[in-house]
Design a protein around this nucleic acid. Sequence first.
DNA 1: TCTGGGGTCCTAGGACCC
DNA 2: TCTGGGGTCCTAGGACCC
Length: 419
Amino acid sequence: MIALVDCRNFYASCERVFRPDLAKTPIVILSSNDGCIIARSDEAKALGVPMGEPYFKAAHIIKEFKIVVFSANFSLYGNMSNRVMAVLGEFSDKLEIYSIDEAFLDCSQEKDLKEYGRLIHYTVRKWTNIPVAVGIAPTKTLAKIGCLLTKRDPDLCGVGLVTANMDLTKILSEVSVSDIWGIGRKLSKSLKLNGINNAQELRMADLRWIQKRYGINVVRTIYELHGTACSELRQLRPIRKSICSSRSFGRKITELREIEEAVAAYVSRAAEKLRSEELKTTTIGVYIRGGRFTNSPFSQSYFVNLFNPTDDTSFLIKIAQTAIRKIFKAGIRYEKCGVSFFNLSLKSQHQLPLFSSINQDLMEGKQLNLGTIIDKLNQRYGRDTLFISACGITPSWKTKAIKMSPHYTTDWRQLPTIG
DNA sequence: TCTGGGGTCCTAGGACCC
DNA sequence: TCTGGGGTCCTAGGACCC
């Protein structure tokens, strides 16, 4: 069983920790440059302030109902998040920090799940002042739905339990496809056009058709709705694959000098992140864009592959500025620019000794099974670094299809059963 | 007038190799 | 009824998440 702990209206709740006088007041949080509404308290939601709305469009509601407005304070939210996660760490050895305001916990050992959920709900509130919802279920997708139920039904007191022996048909019929984790705007629109409106209907959909039409991820979601886990708890944070630093300017920019300065600042921020995680990069990219909300948006990017992996800020700034000069066009009004690093590698290059020891063993003809290698890699780099996917292969003289399996695993011993 | 920032994964297609 | 077979690497685009 998996518990999902989700902080309610996280950014708004964080602000309230330091402004207890605003406990009942509607609050919204704005993105950088006070551009968009990125979080709302329950009261603000009830007044009809939409998520992601540009501030100027919601300004009249905000004024009319005297909604209190905050500019986002991400370092505060990061600190509060750490506190919440530390409390959750007390409840389970197996914890996956999924985002700034959500975590999955393994609670397979717990006997009274309802009570366990209540205890989490109560303790986090007491120790951090942040209200949370708890969803408990056999899979992550169902745990998400458990959380959703608590928002609809106050009688649940913040704990939504979804178990295999409950009437899933009834529960899932009341969940819109667009509320399912992994089904976003595009997919839900398309699914609805095909007559699939709620989670129950999706659960019963034809798997082959779904895989062909929507790909493997939706198939996995369906398995999860049935109670078969397709996404494991990731306790160790995998090594990240890219770092991006970008900002909107808040006004239109036409001067190269200003953009160069911005790029230099973004590179140092991104490089700091790079070093703090003991990584180096082999690719740096820059982009600038404008006209996003006109009918002629444009953007340009330029990537540079580096000869040696590096984390040297001033070197990277030099490259980025050269790159940005290549794509900057005088006279164009730019709104945003950014810097990304790709192909990150470990500073210490641990891969080499690990792989070479495996190669050595193979060369010497030692008996090595796949399981041992996978275990080794996963141990060093965290689970899910390497996984095996059972494949179904459809041979034909004309077509060849290799499909991904919905059920993937890092445990080779499970292969015979799912293969 | 004013419209966030930072990620992941999957799929398809093309170039190229033997 | 018909194309050789088998592979790698890279890129672009599209979807999703918070």
